[in-house]
């Protein structure tokens, strides 16, 4: 039971999108790392206000695409040139032209897989348990509540100081969430 009462962090609610947005900028400027914003709709410019770098998903997409292209090329080379050479319509056993649709389609297919997988990995999904859902107030985020949560594992986290910081930047309904 002692473990269950360990604090996950603090959540604070904000009245409107503007104060929510500017509060996020202040949390970023205060140097917190392990925190996030929660709203039921996208807020334009929020990634910048949170100081988030560009998404890493394109790298997964690119790697997926390159893998697909290479697999497509090797597959056709292996089947039509190496394993079972077959003359089709007087075309060479291997050429980059006739199997291009295969190389191309596999590039697209594996790029899409890479994108999907990259999205899951960078978003830390699937996540079956998130302590934030222990809070009844946090559940209202799916309605009209705007929440900033600072986690206790942040090196700068201090139960008292962080609470007063959240008050200072305009947070209301500040609540500690159990892990």
């Amino acid at each position: 039971m002692a473990e269950a009462e360990q604090s996950y962090g603090l959540i604070a609610s904000f009245k409107n999108t503007a104060s929510f947005f500017h509060a996020a900028e202040k949390v970023r400027d205060a140097g917190y790392k392990k925190w996030d914003t929660y709203s039921s709709f996208p807020v334009h410019g929020m990634p910048e206000a949170q100081g988030q770098p560009r998404s890493k998903v394109p790298i997964f997409t690119f790697c997926g695409g390159i893998t697909g292209f290479i697999i497509g090329t090797l597959m056709v080379w292996y089947m039509n040139y190496f394993d079972y050479p077959l003359i089709v319509g007087g075309k060479p056993f291997f050429s980059p032209i006739f199997p291009f649709p295969i190389m191309y389609e596999l590039t697209i297919l594996l790029s899409a897989f890479g994108t999907l997988g990259g999205m899951f990995i960078t978003n830390l999904l699937p996540q079956h348990y998130n302590p934030l859902f222990n809070s009844a107030k946090f559940l209202e985020v799916s309605g009209d509540r705007l929440v900033i949560a600072i986690e206790s594992r942040d090196p700068q986290y201090d139960p008292q100081a962080t609470r007063s910081f959240l008050e200072e930047i305009g947070g209301t309904d500040i609540e500690e969430v159990n892990a």
């Binding site: 319509g89 007087g90 032209i97 291009f100």
Partner: peptide, 12 residues
């Protein structure tokens, strides 16, 4: 551009 080439290449 490739499709144009490809169709003509294959039809020969």
């Amino acid at each position: 551009s490739f499709s144009q080439y490809f169709l003509i290449y294959n039809a020969n």
